[in-house]
Design a protein around this nucleic acid. Structure first.
Length: 422
DNA sequence: CGTGTTTGACCAGCGC
DNA sequence: GCGCTGGTCAAACACG
C-alpha cells in the first residue's frame, strides 16, 4: 500500500529532474551573476532601493503583524477566534466567492516560479508531464490546499519538512512559511503554511508536487487525499467524461464506517457542495472548518478539549473544488456561464468518484487520527492519517484557484480542528 | 557536529 | 521602466 500510495503522483513525477536542471541552470545564472554582482550592486541604485524597500517592507509588515506567528496559542485567542467563529463561517460560506478568492490568491500563488522554470526549461519529463503538456499546456501545477483548525505552526502530515523561508504576504498579517520535503534529498514537494487572516485558528496548508520516495504510513493518508484530489482535477480536465478513480486504493469501502457514513450523508446533501473556478492553478480545497448540518453526530467530533467542546458548532467541513477554466472543469460543468450552475456543479461533483475518493481520504485521515489520538499515539498510526498528539481537529482541503463567481459549498463534518505538529 | 530555523537579500514575474 | 510582490537562497544562529 505504501508503495502504491507513494506511487500515486499528484502532479508530476519527474519534478526532481526538472528541479535539478532548473537549479543547475539557476546555479549557472547565479555564478554568472556573482561574477558581476559587485558591479550590479554598486551601479544599480534601483537594486539598492529595492533591497531597502524589501527590508523595510518586511520590517514594517512584521510590526504590523504584531509578532504573529504560525503557531497559535488557542487559549490566548480563543475568545477572539470564538467570537470570530461566526464571522469565519460567514466569511467562508457567504463571502467565499470574493474574500476567499482574495485569500486564495495570497495563499495560492505558490510555486509558480517552478512552473515558470519548467516552462522555460521546456524539459520533457515522462508520464504526467507528458499528459500535462499534451492536455494542459497552460495549466499550472495542481495544488491541494488543506484548511484546518490548528494551534500549532503547521499540521503534522507524516512527512518531514524543512522550513526554508518565511514571508509576510500582502493582505495577511500572518507570516507565510515555506517548507520543502526532506524525506528524500531531492523530493520536489513543497508546502506553504499560512493562517487565515479572518480566522487565526484556521491554518491553510498548500501542497504541491509529488513525493519521489516512499512515504511513511502516517503520511499516506494525506498523500492519498492530495493525490486523489489532483488526479480528479487532472482527469476532469483531461476528459469531458466523468473521471475515473485513478487511485484504486482510495475506495470508500476501505475507509471505514465513518467515511462511508460521511459519504452517504454527503451524497444525501449535495447542496453542501459547490464549485468555483479560477484561472491558473487547478486547486482542490477541502474545508472542514465551516459548520453545517448532517455531520454533527460523528463521534470523532472531539469534545475532549475545552476548545472543541465549546466550539463544536463550528466544526464542520466545507468542501470545494475548483479547476482552471483553461483545463475545462469538472464534468458537465461550465464555470464560465451562469451560476445556477452551482446546483449543477454540486450534483456533478457529488457524483464524481474522484471527489469522493478525495473526501474519503480526508475523512479517513481524521478517523485514523482521531483513533490515534485516543490512544495517545506516539508512533506512526497504522491506519494512516495524521499524527497528532491532541484530539479533535478539522481538516480542510481547499481549492484555491479562482474567484469565479460561484459560491462555495459546504459539507460539514465537524471535526474540531486542532492539528498538531510534531 | 549535524540538523533545523531565522531572516535579510536576491531574483523573477507582473501590473501600471 | 519602475515598483510591488511572491518565492527562494544562504549565512548566521539555535538546539540537541
Amino acid at each position: 500500500m505504501e508503495s502504491e500510495l507513494s506511487g500515486s503522483s499528484i502532479i508530476c513525477n519527474d519534478q526532481e529532474e526538472l528541479l535539478k536542471s532548473a537549479k543547475a541552470k539557476m546555479g549557472e545564472v547565479k555564478e554568472e551573476n556573482e561574477s558581476w554582482s559587485s558591479n550590479k550592486k554598486h551601479s544599480h541604485d534601483n537594486n539598492n532601493k529595492k533591497q531597502e524597500s524589501d527590508y523595510s517592507l518586511n520590517k514594517r509588515r512584521k510590526v504590523e503583524a504584531g509578532g504573529l506567528e504560525l503557531g497559535l496559542d488557542y487559549r490566548k485567542i480563543q475568545h477572539n477566534s470564538t467570537a470570530s467563529a461566526t464571522d469565519s463561517i460567514k466569511y467562508s460560506s457567504l463571502e467565499n466567492s470574493n474574500k476567499e478568492s482574495k485569500e486564495d490568491e495570497n495563499v495560492d500563488t505558490w510555486a509558480s516560479s517552478h512552473q515558470d522554470l519548467k516552462a522555460k526549461e521546456n524539459i520533457s519529463s515522462k508520464e504526467v508531464d507528458d499528459q500535462e503538456s499534451l492536455h494542459q499546456p497552460q495549466v499550472k501545477k495542481t495544488r491541494v490546499c488543506i484548511r484546518s483548525r490548528c494551534d500549532s505552526p503547521t499540521i503534522h502530515d507524516g512527512c518531514h519538512w524543512r522550513k526554508y523561508g518565511q514571508k509576510i504576504a500582502k493582505g495577511n498579517p500572518c507570516p507565510r512559511a515555506y517548507y520543502r520535503c526532506t524525506v528524500s534529498p531531492n523530493c520536489p514537494v513543497r508546502k506553504q503554511v499560512q493562517r487565515c487572516p479572518h480566522d487565526m485558528s484556521i491554518l491553510i496548508t498548500t501542497y504541491e508536487g509529488t513525493h519521489n520516495h516512499p512515504l511513511p504510513l502516517s503520511a499516506t493518508a494525506m498523500a492519498s487525499a492530495t493525490s486523489a484530489a489532483a488526479s480528479m482535477i487532472k482527469s476532469s480536465s483531461l476528459t469531458s467524461q466523468t473521471p475515473t478513480l485513478t487511485n484504486p486504493s482510495l475506495t470508500t469501502s476501505s475507509l471505514g464506517l465513518h467515511s462511508t457514513n460521511f459519504m452517504t450523508t454527503f451524497n444525501n446533501n449535495p447542496s453542501l457542495i459547490s464549485a468555483s473556478c479560477h484561472n491558473s492553478h487547478p486547486t482542490v480545497t477541502l474545508d472542514l472548518t465551516v459548520p453545517n448540518s448532517g455531520f454533527s453526530s460523528f463521534d470523532w467530533l472531539s469534545s475532549s478539549s475545552s476548545y472543541s467542546s465549546s466550539t463544536s458548532a463550528r466544526n464542520s467541513s466545507f468542501l470545494n473544488f475548483s479547476s482552471s477554466p483553461a483545463s475545462s472543469s469538472l464534468p458537465s460543468l461550465d464555470f464560465t456561464t451562469s451560476l445556477p450552475t452551482t446546483a449543477v456543479a454540486t450534483k456533478a461533483i457529488a457524483s464524481n468518484p474522484n471527489f469522493q475518493s478525495v473526501l474519503a481520504a480526508a475523512i479517513s485521515s481524521y478517523v485514523g487520527n482521531k483513533a490515534n489520538n485516543d490512544q495517545k499515539m506516539a508512533s506512526f498510526p497504522s491506519s494512516g492519517a495524521f499524527q497528532s498528539t491532541e484530539s479533535g481537529r478539522s481538516l480542510t482541503l481547499f481549492p484555491n484557484s479562482l474567484p469565479l463567481s460561484t459560491s462555495k459549498s459546504n459539507a460539514s463534518v465537524g471535526a474540531d480542528a486542532r492539528d498538531h505538529i510534531g
